[in-house]
Design a protein around this nucleic acid. Structure first.
Lengths: 209, 209
DNA sequence: TGCTTTAAACTAGCGGTGTAAGTTTTAACA
DNA sequence: TGTTAAAACTTACACCGCTAGTTTAAAGCA
């Protein structure tokens, strides 16, 4: 087949298929040939639309970040906005857990990531936080959201209790694996409360440096 | 060459070489053939000592975690211990940034990871925190440490200022890339203070649930 | 001591990967 | 209408993790 009358591929179709494949079978399942097959095409054809595989993965990551709700920064005061945004962010990542490792590595030059940074950073600066502090707070929220959406702390524990005989305090660690979602959610909520309440207290004390 | 009089490889030597290679050239540079070459050996010989590449990477990760100082849990009260341990943890990761993505995915079944979990969890439970809360706090600290040691928030920004013309609050974002280490360190310290002070306040109020 | 088993290197090779190069046909444009 | 660019194709390269089978030396045992 040479050039078809109607293009078989678009960047959008490729990103959609890649996203679905990653969601369904994980990052490792995404190969250029496999993705092409999914789209009814031969592997190298994808290179007419993306220069590298990494560009495709980046586009998938950006399409996920684009789903995060940034409206709270218009409608709420900063502590509330920060909290609701973080919860939306985490909820989006929870729907696409397999792409989280890519996001956790850094925001990259992805447009949706930049738009998000702009919204968060802008809201904090306008609330009176220094440039440096606003950056720190934004980074902190990222650690919290991606950390709790990433490979869970609890997931690392095996179901075999024998493994933990030498660790007196870990004797019910195997239970954690079963409830890892609740563990990460609990940790996230605790962290969110502590951070935002702590920041709010600092602001009221005037130590916004 | 058949079996040599003196074994050329040991698990230790393999882990050391793999760790050095990852530190120097990144995770992607670690291939079985490359690692073997570094050790003066052919690729498949490594399989006499490790079953899979993943096992080698895990061993490297564990050797890094083993360097974290856990002594504070014996010598300090929990807020101080938590803080000093987290700083030691972060310092170790900062020396081996290329392995952090592996650690961030979860503690796995690595012995040093388990020993660390035991120390942290045990100290918190003995300080009166509930099992659930102790788990949450441990997870939170992990988010903070790995997040701030992982691909930096600030690193994602390009040095080209033109990119940020559409983002009014990001106009000096390019500066962040240069100072990304300071940014992550500042965010980490802020987060550590907020979390630990917040937890301490809760404990004093008796809301340790 | 001598025999057997096991360990630790080797070589060869399989199926898979990302991607480069060059080909063909169609669409779009001057 | 002729030229150029786009979008599919096929072929192929170098590398990947890993398996299988071979060789030889070391270690264990009668």
């Amino acid at each position: 087949m040479a050039r078809p009358r109607q293009a078989l591929l678009t960047r959008e179709r490729i990103v959609e298929a890649a996203s679905a494949l990653i969601d369904a079978e994980g990052l490792d399942a995404l190969s250029m040939r496999r993705l092409a097959t999914e789209l009814g095409v031969q592997g190298p054809s994808l290179y007419n639309h993306f220069a590298t595989k990494a560009e495709i993965v980046d586009a998938v990551a950006d399409s996920v970040v684009a789903q995060v709700d940034l409206s709270f920064f218009q409608s709420c005061k900063w502590p509330d906005a920060l909290k609701k945004w973080a919860m939306s962010y985490r909820a989006v990542l929870a729907e696409h857990p397999n792409i989280v490792p890519v996001l956790a590595q850094g925001p990259g030059r992805r447009p949706a990531g930049l738009a998000m940074a702009e919204a968060v950073y802008g809201a904090l600066v306008e609330a009176g936080w220094s440039y440096a502090r606003a950056t720190h707070i934004g980074a902190l929220m990222r650690y919290l959201v991606t950390g709790s959406a990433l490979g869970s702390f609890a997931l690392g524990f095996d179901v075999d209790p024998q493994l933990y005989e030498r660790y007196p305090h870990l004797h019910h660690a195997p239970l954690l694996a079963e409830h890892h979602e609740a563990v990460d959610e609990g940790a996230f909520e605790l962290g969110l409360d502590l951070l935002i309440n702590g920041l709010q207290a600092r602001q009221e004390m005037g130590t916004r440096s």
